[in-house]
């Protein structure tokens, strides 16, 4: 039986997003649906896992399986799902606060494990849902939050550098204002066997109207994709954080290795016999 090709718009659930007009996340949602259509993935084979925040509302807007979980805990939830159900395509979506603040520890270990999933971190350098606090990727001197009226004074979290150091085997940066490039990166990220980290710059016009300037600041990464961590590290550290492209991609063993069953419960229970 021939399954009719699914169009990108068919992946949309039709639920109206809560995002503000002009939010970068609309374009990311569209890019995800186009990537899924391009890859001809059946809806029921896709699971979209998220945490809490504006970005994390995304699963409800896609007609696939999904879990809107706890703040910062999307990656472990997705890990449990993927290990139990390796047949599924698992995508994780969340924001900079969800992923790099409360979710920071899980981010490190997910990169380390090299589990086969795609993590889309939608970075607007602010906590939008809770109305405008600084996030780990906010500049130290941004003083528009009531919680940190003088700015945080703390240097920015470096998602790509940390992903590389933590062991992610695919690291890319996209931009919601570059939908074609983003879609291509998503396709590559999803098809990459291993942990794909896709850092997407996605402006929040409500709490970071200054991010309108991103359009003129983004640029391509200076070099081609590297499969060599030292070269990739140099690229990342030399970059101003606005470089777009796949900076690092390498094929390493995907975790976990699969085992075939070798025992039954009945044979197991014999160990207790006196």
């Amino acid at each position: 039986m021939v399954v009719a090709a699914i169009k990108a718009k068919d992946y949309k659930s039709g639920v109206k997003p809560i995002w503000c007009p002009g939010c970068g996340h609309f374009a990311i949602l569209a890019a995800i649906t186009r990537a899924l259509a391009y890859l001809e993935l059946q809806k029921e084979q896709v699971s979209l896992i998220s945490g809490i925040g504006c970005s994390s509302r995304l699963p409800a807007y896609v007609d696939s399986y999904g879990f809107h979980g706890l703040h910062g805990r999307a990656l472990p939830l997705a890990t449990g799902l993927k290990v139990a159900r390796p047949d599924l395509t698992v995508l994780v979506a969340g924001g900079d606060g969800d992923g790099f603040s409360i979710g920071g520890n899980h981010f490190l270990h997910a990169c380390r494990r090299n589990i086969d999933m795609t993590y889309i971190a939608m970075d607007n350098r602010v906590y939008g849902m809770t109305k405008g606090q600084a996030s780990p990727t906010t500049a130290p001197d941004w003083s528009h939050s009531k919680m940190t009226p003088h700015g945080t004074g703390v240097r920015r979290f470096q998602p790509a550098a940390i992903a590389l150091a933590a062991g992610a085997t695919f690291i890319a940066r996209g931009y919601s204002g570059d939908p074609k490039g983003l879609t291509r990166m998503l396709v590559d990220a999803i098809t990459h066997p291993g942990f794909s980290f896709l850092h997407v710059l996605s402006p929040c016009l409500t709490f970071r109207p200054d991010q309108r300037s991103w359009k003129g600041e983004v640029h391509a990464f200076a070099a081609e994709t590297s499969d060599e961590p030292v070269a990739a590290a140099q690229q990342i550290h030399a970059d101003d954080g606005m470089g777009l492209g796949i900076v690092y991609a390498e094929h390493l063993p995907v975790w976990p290795p699969r085992q075939e069953p070798t025992a039954t419960l009945a044979t197991l229970e014999k160990e207790f016999l006196v």
Binding site: I49, L70, R73, P76, G80, A84
Partner: peptide, 10 residues
């Protein structure tokens, strides 16, 4: 959270 995810997967 892992066991919630695995259980969600059946």
């Amino acid at each position: 959270n892992m066991i919630v995810g695995a259980s969600y997967g059946g």
